[in-house]
Design a protein around this nucleic acid. Structure first.
Lengths: 188, 188, 188, 188
DNA sequence: CATGAATGAGTTTTCATTCAT
DNA sequence: TATGAATGAAAACTCATTCAT
């Protein structure tokens, strides 16, 4: 993005996100993005160098927002911190369906630059630290941290869609179940 | 004349699979598929009605092969059946990287017809049956079967990539760890 | 056409005729012609050098058949000969809708070779002779023969479609009207 | 930005017309149209949804312009009105060779929508009215109006090509001849 | 000869990007 | 800067023709 109107860059990113949700990455066109953002096609190029830059930028944006919301260690006792994270994970996925789809479509596409991929990876640091703390305290199995993180992420992504249409009470129970599932899997 | 050759249809499907792995669904072109399959562009259309039909067909093909290999219940005692499945799951994912990427890219794309989506869903029946057996025998938690299946699938998909480059011994240990992780999560 | 099966060449010509009627010259494909003729695509090329040759040949065929049926002078007294011709003209057009459409579509297309165009023109000789006989006998106006022939042909082509769906009696009256119309126009 | 330019749409229509004249409807390509219009291929699609829409639109355009020029009843005494029309008809055909060829090629093609066909048919109303006036005044034969119109149109289309290359004087005489021919045919 | 699959040039159409206004 | 028409390089798809069987 550039100098002028930061809000407009956000509009474009948001429009891209929802357009991918609607038609898939393979069906994405800049014209549709512009239409959804309520601007002219050419204006997109004032804020982003091109389609690749737009998608790469959105990917980093989305990953970062996700990490900030979910992947932190707030210093609570381990079980509590872990449960907070799994619940936040579910919350995020459910409230950000478009983002999840987008990240999934981008994962194996040639649009993400290596630089962005590396930057995005940094967001997972706090969780890694939390899990390592758990291993030190012998609360968790002595497994490779990367394995554990993959496990948690995979579980969340797989289970979140199931929460669609649940009542508040049902959802609360669901969150508990998922948290327990993960904990039981990882606990020593 | 040359007779329409079933093997050639397979070649095209295989070429598509690897082309998606190489350039992503968004970057897929029929010409590249044909080149990879060693045939003329037009020939693709002798075997498939068009790009949509080709991708839809490949999706069903891939899902079915996957289900046949992984998602069956061979009547072993529950724990053994469960372990066999998780190991087969990992085996499949590792030996079929292109398929996994392809299925991931297709999942939220507009290429999959509703019909195919439904047909593909049937493949999971045996696993559902196995998990229900486990609940009846009170070996597993009393959770919704759909939740359990999502959990297992998500875990596998997330963890399989970690096996990249492992030695045979390392991989055997990894399989055990994953099987245990899943079992611990689901066991009553 | 070649040596083998004269009837098959006829099948192909007939199929082409009806295919043009169905989808227009612009929509004509050899595959569709072959399908309609009940043979394989390649077989068309055994009987005709290619699409151009097929269409050119069909054009000459059709024009000739038309001339033989309609554009002759059977030596009757002029008015009778004239009336016979106009009635035959209408009969032909009505019984050969496909041929008429085909000739219309071909008229301004690049498919007709100059050679064929010239050959087709010869068919009109007898009518020209008849009209000249009429001028000599001072039964007809002293107009250029080419003008008269254009007039008669144009009238027929324009009016024939109107006969669609008429009863036998209605059609007989229609034929009389058209014959009178033409005669009144040309008579001295 | 450049504003969408009505003149450019006209350029495209005109280019299409002449391209059809040059290579026939069956040989028409959008690229050739664009080249003739002096624009890029893609620009055609800014003004017309596609080839079908372009041709359909051009057909309606052409038919309407033709009707406006030829098929009107300006309230002159019948014989004069009739003569004006036949002369205008010839004038039009001679000055608009491309249009005539185009309309001929389109007539039996699948490009014309039913809607357009109906709209085009309305243009003939005034002539129908004129002929009916003639029948009421007992100046014309009591024939079906549709027959009369077909007759006049057919005669014009057939005879106009004969005027090619005539001198001004010759053409004037030709117009008179044709007008007389038609009048003699239809008069009571 | 008949067949119909294979070929690949050519056609329509899309769309990222540019640029005149 | 914003606009959206213009561009032209792909991409999907068609189809006349060839050729292995």
């Amino acid at each position: 993005m550039r100098q002028k109107d930061e809000a407009k860059a956000q509009d474009i990113l948001r429009a891209t996100l929802h357009e991918v949700q609607a038609v898939g990455l393979a069906g994405l066109s800049i014209e549709a993005v512009a239409r959804r953002a309520g601007i002219a096609t050419g204006t997109v190029y004032t804020y982003f160098r091109g389609k690749d830059a737009l998608l790469d930028s959105l990917y980093l944006h989305t990953k970062t927002a996700f990490s900030d919301f979910v992947l932190r260690d707030d210093g609570l006792p381990l079980r509590a911190a872990f449960t907070r994270m799994t619940k936040a994970y579910l919350d995020y996925i459910i409230e950000h369906e478009a983002e999840i789809i987008f990240m999934g479509q981008m994962a194996n596409s040639p649009y993400v630059t290596e630089q962005t991929r590396e930057a995005a990876a940094l967001g997972a640091r706090p969780v890694a630290a939390m899990l390592e703390r758990g291993k030190l305290e012998q609360l968790l199995k002595d497994l490779d941290t990367a394995w554990m993180m993959a496990f948690v992420g995979g579980t969340m992504k797989a289970m979140a869609p199931l929460a669609a249409g649940m009542s508040a009470a049902g959802y609360a129970a669901f969150q508990e179940s998922v948290a327990t599932l993960c904990w039981d899997a990882l606990k020593a």
